[in-house]
Design a protein around this nucleic acid. Structure first.
Lengths: 347, 347
DNA sequence: TAATAGTGCTTAAACGCTTAACCTAGCTTC
DNA sequence: GAAGCTAGGTTAAGCGTTTAAGCACTATTA
């Protein structure tokens, strides 16, 4: 264990006081140009690294943010983590991670642990529909504009509208919506947006969680039946479900997008490499991460940061439509007697 | 900003010294049962949370580990992060994340930043083939047994053998191997294992990165041609590539596993929900995470932890074969004249 | 020429915790 | 009944930083 040089090492070697060294390096107090130079050089020479602990103790700020992520099934995990890490890094902040395992109680404990560890503020990407309340610590919640405690998020509704319009423009009028769980505001908002693009008409909806409760985990979604009944597109609220849909349809011998279109959400890593590549909506993660951090920083009383105007973003950060191969023109409308013509492989 | 109670608050209210309170709560010094009780109760009542900064400054230990992850394209990211977070949490350690963006230099910087932030040790999941050297700080590298600086990892070679045997037992003898990049020890080890299962014979190999350099990113891998020439299975070194293969084959009208089998590696989150669900190899992440952390802890000079016997695990932590639907019996050997019979959709 | 202002630095306290060293009873022991 | 233990505390120093306050000059102003 090498022992790191500290301020007093520098001070001693230069015959000045510790305070002066501190001032010189932070650029705060009054130090002559030459001495300042000398101190900085010496610091460089010794490989001085400030002690965060010492600084934290003195200033009451750790310069560390806590990030609480729902669980391993949150497919956006890496993107959240890395974007926040990056945005934090730009401001000289570190990111401590916590895992809520998708359990509301664990989520509370995770927040607590991070606060104990000295996090100046917490960013929470909550479990579907979980509330994050009663904390007197600076917190930013990334969820969905319609969620009760939401701080900042993408415009999931608007994203739904965009993808709905896209399908409509391709001539689809028999669209089935696929979600995981109706308790998630993110999902219900996306879904509502899609419906809005179809003038608010009710669209047949598949909730995977309900289905799996009935038929067992990882069960087929029975999409082929919907196609037989005339569905021409599946609009999924996540690329994960889109992937599931695409493979299930292909596995059954249907062509995507030839026979039926599929769209997703979130532009997950692999969405562009599968065949067909998935048409999807992408969040502006970078911006969301920056806003979340700024929001926390503005809550720290001594902050030089002004709160981002969240009101202005009440609808959320706009999403971007990424058109790829999984969505195409609706097949010419099949007459109802024509249904049997859809090729379906038995196994 | 609520101001947290500290040791002296407790001490003052109870009329004892700060040292006694510290001793009582840590259970180290000598404190009578009754007073100990009283102190713990008071701490509870006031909602006392120890200050990590104070403790860190005093003990020289931050109880925080740094975790450096390659980049967003590292599909195992969430699993690494959460397993390490969990294993660390059990020991009262926090996890600070760093991002190397897949760049060796950035990786060095990330390590440095984490050390500056006071991390007691660093766990690195390096970019393919990157070396992690010259650090005097406790470090654990999770890579592959054959990598130069590897500390602990899964037995990728053994995993390759297992999946190779699995395919062989299913009657496959024309296997094509799919990897991303030959510079990754993880990948080359897996690949070598697969070959070993086929008595070391050379198997046709697709390196995706080479292919993409030629044909552009996200290009088709041309797998159908291999099938036409008699290949009955694709053994991919990652589920990501397996997914790409499955969809590409299905998209072309081939049945998986009816016409051709596909296997992956890593049991990524979605591997079980696609159709067909992907046969894969799973690492024992929990164990790897624990060993990595233990290894770091044992390097701290005052440690009560003894170093895990890494020599014993020189081959790596065994992997587990997860058989699902994407691998099946090899189709009856087609005579070479029979090749045209393979149904291939044009688009 | 005396008050004022600015410059460049030092002193000293504070942040919250840990820990070695010390003190004081009360108790044993021979 | 003096020496030695032990239990149960206290004192005080130290970890590395920041920062308000102070001090000794020199330069400026009226």
């Amino acid at each position: 264990m090498p022992t790191r040089p500290n301020l007093s090492d520098i001070a001693r070697q230069l015959g000045v006081s510790v305070a002066t060294v501190s001032n010189a390096l932070s650029g705060k107090g009054r130090v002559s140009r030459e001495l300042g130079e000398a101190i900085r050089n010496k610091a460089e020479e010794l490989g001085y690294i400030p002690s965060v602990a010492g600084r934290a103790l003195s200033t009451g700020r750790s310069n560390v943010l806590g990030l609480v992520l729902a669980d391993i099934n949150q497919p956006l995990f890496p993107q959240f983590a890395l974007n926040i890490e990056e945005a934090a890094g730009e401001l000289g902040l570190g990111v401590l991670i916590g895992n809520s395992r998708g359990d509301p109680e664990e989520q509370e404990r995770a927040i607590r642990r991070l606060i104990e560890r000295g996090a100046d503020g917490i960013i929470v990407v909550p479990r579907y529909g979980t509330r994050v309340t009663g904390h007197r610590w600076p917190i930013a919640v990334i969820d969905s504009p319609s969620s009760p405690d939401n701080t900042i998020s993408a415009d999931h509704f608007g994203g739904g509208v965009a993808i709905g319009r896209h399908l409509r423009e391709l001539g689809h009028d028999r669209v089935v919506v696929v979600g995981l769980y109706s308790g998630s505001h993110v999902q219900t908002d996306r879904l509502a947006g899609i419906k809005a693009a179809f003038d608010g008409q009710e669209l047949p909806t598949i909730w995977i969680q309900d289905l799996e409760r009935e038929r067992g985990p990882n069960c087929p979604l029975g999409l082929v039946d919907f196609v037989k009944e005339g569905a021409t597109a599946f609009a999924c609220v996540s690329d994960l479900h889109a992937l599931r849909a695409v493979t299930e349809l292909q596995h059954a011998g249907l062509a995507v997008p030839g026979d039926v279109s599929v769209t997703g959400f979130d532009d997950l890593g692999w969405a562009s490499v599968v065949a067909p590549a998935i048409t999807t909506m992408r969040m502006d993660m970078k911006r969301i991460a920056r806003l979340a951090i700024k929001h926390i920083l503005s809550q720290l009383d001594d902050s030089k940061f002004e709160a981002p105007d969240l009101a202005e973003l009440a609808d959320g950060v706009p999403m971007e439509l990424i058109i790829r191969q999984s969505s195409g023109p609706a097949p010419r409308t099949r007459s109802s007697t024509d249904q049997a013509a859809v090729p379906v492989r038995s196994e």
